[in-house]
Design a protein around this nucleic acid. Sequence first.
DNA 1: AGAATTCTAGATTGCGCACTCCAGAACCTG
DNA 2: CAGGTTCTGGAGTGCGCAATCTAGAATTCT
Lengths: 217, 217
Amino acid sequence: MSIGQERALTRKGAMTRQRIVQAAAELMLERGIAGTRLEDVQLAAGVSTGQVYHYFADKQALVLAVVDFQSDEVLDAQEPLLARLDTMTGLRAWRDAMVEHQRRLQCVGGCPIGSLGSELAETDPAGRHRVAASFERWHGGIHHGLRRMQERGELAADVDVDDLALEALTALQGGLLLTQIQRTTRPLAVALDGIIARISALRTQAGQLRRTGAAVR
Amino acid sequence: MSIGQERALTRKGAMTRQRIVQAAAELMLERGIAGTRLEDVQLAAGVSTGQVYHYFADKQALVLAVVDFQSDEVLDAQEPLLARLDTMTGLRAWRDAMVEHQRRLQCVGGCPIGSLGSELAETDPAGRHRVAASFERWHGGIHHGLRRMQERGELAADVDVDDLALEALTALQGGLLLTQIQRTTRPLAVALDGIIARISALRTQAGQLRRTGAAVR
DNA sequence: AGAATTCTAGATTGCGCACTCCAGAACCTG
DNA sequence: CAGGTTCTGGAGTGCGCAATCTAGAATTCT
């Protein structure tokens, strides 16, 4: 998919590269991109200067790799949750997971993708594009779930699920940002409760009659 | 209000300081904090190195001043709009103004406060606190409008307007972030339309009967 | 095995940029 | 108008950190 994969890495090489990216991702989440020195990355990953520059042309290239890494990381982690977004129960599980995750992190770092995006937006066009693509994927995942909810007849037919999915994503991002800055999970919880209430209100009468907790089958 | 205003500035001094902060604010919005060199600020403000360090201890102090400046800037600009948030018409005017503003800026910079917050969150605790306070003020403004809407009986009595205001703020922030990264006003527009629809759905029957466009008086 | 390639290592370099310094101009105050 | 204070100017400094360089160790290939 990516164009410029010039050379094949050895298995060991690939692992080293991975260690670097992973360490960089963690540090950049905790301290921001500008706040992360390459030396820190080396230390955290247990590699030498030469190795970093063996695998990445410069810091920006590493940052791009971190964006890709976080995209996969986040979306992989979300996948099982997104797959269940076609029911109210699934929506609530999604909400709970996000809030709980932030609670565990003590609200540090915010959204791994959103934070990177915010830092890169006016600095690194290539980075911004990748983050945009990542959000597009995320939006697609939510959209998919909601569309299934609509196809099952639980969501009214005239609802624009594409817009609705975008609303959910913005609520999530806004909630995460406020949560990161206020250091409380409340904004995130309230934002997600809000979007869930909104979706709930858009259900068909048949959908609303279903005991939301009960199994459907 | 602030504690450490050691010395009184001359009128001219105050103006110079203001020029510096304003120039810094603009540049930091366009390029981010880390992407803004003090030299650029000097150039843009038409001042010398000495002047910057005459008014600010270091770059961080300048950044704090920029946060305060942007808080006032944004909230002053919002004030007339927030004052009308107690009607559906007012809500829509608010939405339109935000979207139009982003369109004019071609979606560059995102939210002046949110962007700063995101950059400072894991780097500068003092900065994070000021941004948090700024959001608190903003939230208060929205809350005030919605509460008046409730007091007028248009919004159902059992609605938690504090939460609702927070939802609106998160929708706005999330919308702005996505808009900044995607370089389209659509996420912002959709997010705000969503929260407006949600508020609309929470109106009392009496409130819903009112022709939403018509004057109330 | 031996050549070619990939990987590891860390000392060194170079420069961008925050910050210092000092000297002089403008401005208040009595 | 003398003496203090605030303000302005810009040359100069130091250092943090990205990026280079060189040389040697491990793999892979034939």
